[in-house]
C-alpha cells in the first residue's frame, strides 16, 4: 500500500516537465525515505536523479519498497489534468499494476481520480558516489537557462570554464562564436540572484548543449542552480526543490577528438 499526499501538486507537475524531455520511461522508487527516480536518457549520456523526501509530503505511507515503472509522457498527460493549486495524492496497492493519481481542488469541491497503467521497465541503477568537485558554481537558474538557450542558437556544444574571476560559457558554430562570462556576485540583498563560485582549481569542460537545454526545463523548480564540475567526472546540474529534495542531472563531458585518439 502506497499513499503519498502532496499539497503542492504543481511541484510534481514541474518535476515531470523537467525530466520528460530527457527520459521517456522510468521507474519511480518509493521507500521509507522518499519518492525517488533515477534514469538515463536513451543514449546513456545523461542521467537524472530525483528525490522527494518523505517529510515533504503532507502524508506519506509506504508499507514496503515499491518500484513503479511509468511512461513519463503518459504521466505528464495525467498530471496536466491537475490544477496548479490542486493537492495531488499518489496511490498504489501492493501487487497492482496501476497507479492512481487523485487531484483535489483547493476548496475540495472537485476530486478527480486518474488511474494509469504501470509498465515493466528494465533499468540499471547506478551508484553515484559523493565526489569532491574542482569547481562549484551557483547561479540564478533563469540566467543559466537563458545562456544555454542563447548559445544553442549559435553552436552545438558549450565549453564551461571556471576561473577565479568567473565562469565562462562559450560556443562556436557556423555563423560565429559566443562567449558569456558570469562574474562572482555575492549579494545579501537578493540571495537568489547571487552567483557564487567555489573553485579548488580551474576547470574547463565541453558539453552538448542539447542536454543542457533539457536540464534547464527544471528551472521553475528553483531560483538557483548549482553546477559542479570536475575534469574527470560528469557535470552535475542540480536544482533544489524547496524543503523536499532535489533534481540532479549528470552529463558526461565531450572529449576533444585528439584526446580520443590518444586514449
Amino acid at each position: 500500500m502506497l499513499e503519498l499526499r502532496l499539497v503542492q501538486g504543481s511541484l510534481l507537475k514541474k518535476v515531470l516537465e523537467a525530466i520528460r524531455d530527457l527520459v521517456t520511461d522510468a521507474n519511480f522508487d518509493c521507500s521509507g525515505t522518499g519518492f525517488s527516480l533515477q534514469a538515463m536518457d536513451s543514449s546513456h549520456v545523461a542521467l537524472v536523479a530525483l528525490l522527494l523526501r518523505s517529510e515533504g509530503f503532507e502524508h506519506y505511507r509506504c508499507d514496503r519498497n515499491l518500484s513503479m515503472g511509468m511512461n513519463l509522457n503518459n504521466m505528464a498527460k495525467m498530471l496536466r489534468c491537475a490544477g496548479n493549486d490542486d493537492i495531488i495524492t499518489i496511490k498504489a496497492d501492493d501487487g497492482s499494476d496501476t497507479v492512481t493519481f487523485m487531484f483535489e481542488s483547493p476548496n475540495q469541491d472537485k476530486i478527480a481520480d486518474f488511474e494509469m497503467k504501470l509498465m515493466d521497465i528494465d533499468s540499471e541503477h547506478l551508484g553515484i558516489p559523493d565526489s569532491e568537485y574542482q569547481a562549484i558554481v551557483r547561479m540564478p537558474s533563469s540566467e543559466f537557462s537563458r545562456i544555454c538557450k542563447d548559445l544553442s542558437s549559435i553552436g552545438d556544444t558549450v565549453v564551461i570554464s571556471v576561473t577565479k574571476e568567473g565562469v565562462k560559457f562559450s560556443t562556436a558554430g557556423d555563423i560565429g562564436t559566443a562567449n558569456i562570462v558570469c562574474r562572482q556576485n555575492k549579494t545579501v540583498d537578493k540571495p537568489e540572484e547571487a552567483t557564487i563560485i567555489e573553485m579548488q582549481e580551474p576547470v574547463s569542460l565541453t558539453f552538448a548543449l542539447r542536454y543542457m537545454n533539457s536540464f534547464t526545463k527544471a528551472s521553475p523548480l528553483s531560483d538557483q542552480v548549482t553546477i559542479s564540475l570536475s575534469s574527470e567526472l560528469p557535470v552535475v546540474v542540480e536544482y533544489k526543490i524547496a524543503e523536499m529534495g532535489y533534481i540532479r542531472f549528470y552529463l558526461a563531458p565531450k572529449i576533444e577528438e585528439d584526446e580520443e585518439m590518444k586514449s
Partner: peptide, 24 residues
C-alpha cells in the same frame, strides 16, 4: 538548421555516463 559545428575536429561525446558510475 545550422546544426553542424564548424570546427574541424568537434568534440565527441566520448563516454557515456555508465563509464563513470558503477551499477548497483
Amino acid at each position: 538548421g545550422a546544426k553542424k559545428p564548424a570546427k574541424a575536429a568537434p568534440p565527441k561525446q566520448g563516454k557515456n555516463i555508465m563509464s563513470f558510475f558503477k551499477k548497483i
